[in-house]
């Protein structure tokens, strides 16, 4: 009897150890793609990332060399347009959800924002195509920026609301007690206290739309040349990577890898920056 119980106990311990091992290997498998993608980006892309890549235009098929400077600048222009739409709407909308409104309406708005965050990015491309491209008869940087900006809005609303709710109520009460009007309290005290968190949310949203391709396919459309007119089609790094990746030319494949390496590096830099910012925030607020 005693012996049996001891055996049973060993067996249960062993089972527990086995489960932990299986879970550990699952975790390894989950992060394996990250390592593999990084490894191959470095192996295939590093040799083509050079001075020319950041300064030259793409070359025609068969002509080696060339770069993606127009796509890099184009992506930045699109991000600036998206930011001009997404940041004011997102941040102020988030302020409303955290500071004003009734609980019921706000939970509905929150819910809608979550639903919007789950909408596939390509549908935004289709919507902006119908809204802008068809109406103004042409692909344009404006259309691409709008598509990205619309994707940013619900993302920023949610992150802004979350960090503003973290600001202790005592801050608001102290300001109001001094006779500061409510909106000034919100702007100068609450938003300022939460500014790091708000910026974090904005950066994450920018990093997210910076890698988006699907909503740009038929809005910004892409361009092999320089374009400084925002009502014309414009190049973007993810679009260029896609075009090159599905092309049959080795030169272009190399450029696609290089572009991907640059894009991923940019996105990861933003993520690291965010990590540094959030470390400061948790320390200061809590």
């Amino acid at each position: 009897m005693h012996l049996q119980r001891a055996d049973n106990h060993t067996w249960r311990k062993a089972k527990s150890g086995l489960a932990s091992t299986v879970a550990f290997f699952s975790a390894l498998l989950v992060i394996a793609p990250l390592g593999l993608v990084f490894f191959h980006l470095l192996v295939n892309g590093a040799s083509s990332v050079n001075w020319n890549f950041f300064t030259k235009l793409p070359t025609p098929v068969g002509v080696p060399g060339g770069g993606m400077v127009n796509a890099i600048v184009g992506s930045l222009e699109l991000l600036a347009l998206a930011a001009a739409i997404g940041i004011p709407v997102g941040v102020l909308g988030g302020v409303y959800l955290a500071e004003y409104g009734s609980a019921r309406v706000n939970s509905l708005l929150r819910f809608l924002a979550d639903v919007l965050n789950g909408v596939p990015s390509i549908t935004w491309g289709v919507v902006v195509y119908g809204l802008v491209v068809l109406r103004f008869k042409g692909f344009s940087a404006y259309a691409g920026g709008l598509a990205l900006g619309l994707i940013m809005i619900p993302l920023i609303i949610r992150t802004t609301e979350e960090v503003i709710l973290l600001v202790p109520n005592g801050y608001r009460e102290a300001a109001l007690a001094l006779g500061v009007s409510r909106w000034k309290t919100i702007v100068h005290i609450v938003m300022k206290t939460a500014s790091k968190g708000i910026i974090t949310g904005i950066l994450l949203a920018l990093a997210r739309v910076g890698g988006e391709t699907a909503p740009l396919l038929f809005t910004a459309f892409g361009n092999r040349f320089w374009n400084h007119n925002l009502s014309e089609p414009i190049a973007a790094l993810p679009l260029q990577i896609f075009t090159y990746a599905i092309s049959p030319y080795d030169d272009w494949h190399r450029q696609a890898w290089a572009g991907a390496l640059v894009l991923v590096t940019g996105i990861f830099c933003v993520n690291v920056l965010v990590r540094i910012l959030t470390r400061g925030r948790t320390a200061s607020i809590v």
């Binding site: 993608v37 910076g210 890698g211 988006e212 896609f242 990746a245 696609a256 894009l263 996105i267 993520n271």
Partner: peptide, 22 residues
């Protein structure tokens, strides 16, 4: 581990596709 998983989430779809093809 959590940080690594967040980084995986940050990889753009088109880059995963590129890796997928080649």
């Amino acid at each position: 581990l959590v940080s690594l998983i967040e980084m995986l989430a940050a990889i753009p779809s088109v880059i995963l596709g590129l890796w997928g093809i080649f």
